[in-house]
Design a protein around this nucleic acid. Structure first.
Lengths: 303, 303
DNA sequence: ATAGTTCTTTGACTAAAGTCAAAGAACTAT
DNA sequence: ATAGTTCTTTGACTTTAGTCAAAGAACTAT
């Protein structure tokens, strides 16, 4: 558990060094709660959204928002479609204040980096980018859900929209797997969830990827619809999904998985190869398939 | 200022994701202030030390400590040498509580890393180590001080002790530069300070390195006693000091700087070479010198 | 011995942050 | 239309975190 100690060590150092400062300087003229809220409001959100995002008490939040309104920092309005809700928007004065917050934070960060050479800065931002990428990946959980679950269908819709935009010939959504093909013993449907702001399971978790496994013929499964949300790409999530689907295949007694892919999806093809898939002749023929891959699952330390 | 944005971005993500959680879970049973204090107490410190380290109000701190005492978490005693001071030590119950805090934080960190493969964890800890190294380096300021200043002498003492332990023949401190050689126009003495916990100038700053420049002959300077504290090595600080000394030499109209080094200090030799120094014949002869280096300062974009 | 300084304690406050419950308006599903 | 749910507001609190000043005990330097 060396890693754990390293992470905690960094956390201690970093929050001492930067996190605390940031907060402290951020709201010099007003209470931290208000300053943070004003910052979170951005270009306008509903109180409801803020409440779940920040985990604040409804009463407390209401008062904070009204206090900001009284100071002329925000306008509180009612959205057209639901009169229970309140949407909070910054006034010009509020925007100025946020700008000021940002300038202060920028100045602080700039002062912090000042002593470094351009090379060192580049190294630092590279390291931070790597760390963020891996921390994000670590915060994503992959779960088996029913093929008919709303999250599953939402992912497939997003997938269909993505590739419809990408394939020159477009994509017809009727080619998607049906819920019954990927449920229970017949197959599996995985959804990747990126946790809310705090990284633990909670109301903020949203689907950022999916993948389906269905039975093709005895002992042979087919992997379909491996998709990762635009915001969650380049984290290594597709590999995680793929590995999860392979596990599901093994658990269902399948020795081989196959998949096909479109000629335009070259990164996907490279990934399949890197994950141990080998190209094979067409095992099925349909419009969007130009390359076919296969992987034996029985080799290696399979259960 | 792309770097600044990157740093702030990471800061936002990281504190949201980890920092906040850590704090929140740390003190589930008691107020954060108390929990943090108990944690900071460690194996026992004086209130005075805590006050400067945490920047707390004396009255507030006194009450916090007494509250912990009333709960049986700490014992407050008087040190033998000064009856004004109070030293706070954890009781067995207090230690158990800190252990519990640590277990929680460890579990949290472990849960966070759980989804990563060993390779990914190694990549993450590597990136965090790099980031920490560069952030520390960024938090170190190099200042010109008088050669007779207490910090200067303290650094030279530490330097002498270090190389005395390192040279097979030991080191005689009478070989150190005198204060007058490195002050004003005659030369320069640089001290590197690592800021306190918060990274800004403050009471916590402590000297972690030094370097001296003296005039050797017209137009030629000599760099001596470049030293970095054990805790601040491998950050790239020696290079910073060297660059600072070269600037000081340029500012004094010197075109060339020389230095000598002991045969055992191979990393130093490698660093000098990497910084543009070339080995030359002995320009002076004394016991601890086995390699001599020189660098012209007039090339490049000198002022 | 004395004056000045350091350190802690105590009293008297304040502001911020947050909790809980009740109530009312507005929506949704049946 | 009715019952149940969602969302915000308000009132009445509590706890936490912190500030400031005065005072007293203990030290240090002269």
């Amino acid at each position: 558990m060396e890693d754990v100690a390293d992470l905690r060590r960094f956390n201690r150092y970093f929050t001492r060094r930067i996190g605390v400062l940031d907060d402290h300087y951020l709201g010099q003229d007003r209470p931290l709660g208000e300053a943070r809220l004003l910052f979170e409001i951005g270009d306008g959100v509903s109180l409801r959204e803020l409440r779940t995002r920040l985990g604040l008490d409804a009463g407390y939040l209401s008062r904070l928002a009204r206090a900001l309104e009284a100071q002329g920092m925000v306008r509180v309005g009612v959205p057209p479609h639901d009169n229970r809700l309140r949407i909070v928007e910054p006034t010009p004065a509020g925007r100025v204040e946020v700008e000021e917050q940002n300038r202060r934070a920028d100045a602080l960060a700039a002062g912090l980096l000042q002593a470094l050479t351009p090379d060192q800065r580049a190294e630092l931002t590279g390291a931070l980018a790597t760390a963020e990428r891996l921390l994000r990946l670590a915060g994503i959980t992959v779960e088996v859900v029913d093929g008919a679950a709303p999250d599953a269908r939402a992912c497939l819709d997003a997938y269909a929209a993505d590739i419809d935009a990408r394939f020159p010939e477009g994509f017809d959504a009727s080619d998607l797997v049906g819920p019954e093909e990927v449920s229970g013993e017949a197959g599996a449907f995985l959804v990747a969830y990126e946790g809310g702001g705090d990284g633990v399971e909670g109301p903020g978790a949203r689907p950022v990827g999916c993948g389906a496994l269905r039975r093709l013929e005895p002992g042979v499964g087919e992997i379909r619809h491996v998709w990762v949300h635009r915001d969650a790409r380049r984290l290594g999530l597709a590999r995680r999904l793929l590995a999860g689907l392979e596990d599901a295949a093994r658990a269902r007694g399948l020795d081989v998985v196959r998949l096909d892919t479109h000629r335009t999806l070259t990164e996907a093809q490279a990934m399949y190869r890197a994950c141990g898939y080998t190209e094979i002749p067409a095992y099925v023929d349909h419009v969007y398939a130009h390359h076919w891959f296969e992987k034996r699952l029985t080799d290696g330390p399979a259960s």
